[in-house]
Amino acid sequence: MKILICEDDEIMLKAISFKLNRDGYEITSAKNGKIASEMIISQDFDLVITDHLMPYINGFELINMIRQEFKKTMPIIMLSRIGQEESVVEALKAGADDYITKPFSPNELSIRIQKLIIKNQK
């Protein structure tokens, strides 16, 4: 299972990658939306986790690109902050499958990932 994590905060990026790696996923990490979009073109991922606010290309646009331009259907989880509920709705409209609000429990993230992957395999 290959997962792409796109997050501009390096400490968080490391932490999430480590955690999911322990859960047995193969992790690729991207520091910003631009790098992520290039990776998505060249490789296939089973799931994408993306932050909301990022330099170069933000979370929305990344989702938009994945769905509209690259026409890929893998599940996408959006990371957002408290107080940005409106943007969550927009993200879901743009094609995200799920979202998780920071601060979050790492275990909850694992469970959501599992569910989405299983759902997608059916």
């Binding site: 905060d9 400490i11 968080m12 932490a15 920071k102 601060p103 429990s105 790492p106 275990n107 909850e108």
Partner: peptide, 15 residues
């Protein structure tokens, strides 16, 4: 600094 960064982004047992 590192601890705070992680603390602010996680909840539950991790926190």
């Amino acid at each position: 600094g590192v601890l705070i960064e992680l603390y602010m982004n996680f909840t539950g047992d991790t926190q």
